[in-house]
């Protein structure tokens, strides 16, 4: 899945906090090809969120460069940059005082899109994330379930038709069934819309099931990267540890579930 020019490229990027005492990201180089779905896996404090925030300039690196489509992001106006990149926040990050349609339409509104076009786009996006237009459009975030809110979060990220979507533990707070359904739905959207996605997660199983490629971070350093198959060949003890859980789960499931039975597919959100 590698093309000639990576869409997103981190080159020797470092970022520290608290006056250099905490090295959140330590000399990381990473490339993401156009159309790729990359998962960054690591425990909390591994620097994965910091790395992603650097991509849309929510924070600035101390050293190194980040390029998007070959262009150094430091040269781009951060506001323009962020409006071009979709961002899905951990627990939705929806604005509680705005209706669902206002939340979804916020970035087009900031870009000065006419109200009529925004309304049409909002309906299109509600269809896309499989929410009922009439039922959800005028409601407020607190009236929705966690899964519905995260679907709105995805719709909002896609509103301005970005090529790149950044997701910060998007499904972390959801129950397993909802999480599975949402993951599958997003994976389908990623393909259909030809997106390039970086997703942060601490859950290796989720990463294996959704991503094309996985980057493993620990204490600010990139310890391994590759497809799930490549990772399983890795000799790195930490990577082995991370892969242990899904392996054990798979074995247990093999034993506990009838061999030819279909894995349950959750349709609920």
């Amino acid at each position: 899945m590698t093309s000639a020019l990576p869409l997103i490229a981190f080159k020797h990027v470092s970022k520290s906090f608290d006056g250099g005492r905490i090295h959140a990201v330590d000399d990381v180089s990473l490339e993401v090809a156009e159309g790729e779905f990359l998962a960054i896996v690591g425990s909390s404090g591994s620097g994965k969120t910091t790395l992603m925030r650097l991509a849309n300039r929510l924070i600035a690196p101390d050293a190194g460069h980040i390029a998007i489509a070959g262009e150094d992001v430091a040269q781009v106006d951060p506001i323009t940059l962020r409006r071009r990149i979709g961002y899905v926040f951990q627990s939705g990050g929806l604005f509680p005082h705005m209706s669902i349609k206002d939340n979804i339409g916020i970035t087009p509104r900031l870009l000065g899109t006419p109200a009529k076009e925004i309304a049409a786009r909002v309906d299109e996006l509600l269809d896309l994330v499989r929410l009922d237009r009439k039922q959800h459009r005028d409601r407020f975030p607190h009236e929705l379930s966690g899964g519905e809110r995260q679907r709105v979060g995805v719709a909002r990220a896609l509103a301005a038709k970005p090529r790149i979507v950044l997701m910060d533990e998007p499904f972390g707070a959801l129950d397993p069934l909802t999480r599975d359904a949402l993951g599958d739905d997003y994976r389908a959207l990623h393909r259909k819309l030809k997106l390039t996605t970086i997703m942060i997660t601490h859950d290796m199983t989720e990463a294996i099931l959704l991503a094309d490629r996985i980057a493993v971070m620990r204490s600010g350093k990139l310890v391994a990267e590759g497809t799930p198959a490549q990772l399983s060949e890795s000799n790195d003890p930490y990577v082995g540890e991370l892969l242990g859980t899904p392996r054990r789960q798979a074995e247990r499931l093999q034993i506990l579930l009838p061999k030819d039975g279909a894995t349950p597919q959750g349709g609920a959100t």
Binding site: N56, L58, I79, R82, R83, S91, T107
Partner: peptide, 25 residues
């Protein structure tokens, strides 16, 4: 703070974040 970051993330300027998100909340 997560909402202020969300406001930044969707592409609001500091002024827009103040008038569209922070003051209303």
């Amino acid at each position: 703070p997560a909402l202020i970051e969300a406001a930044q993330g969707v592409g609001m300027t500091p002024r827009q974040s103040l008038t569209m998100v922070e003051l209303p909340l």
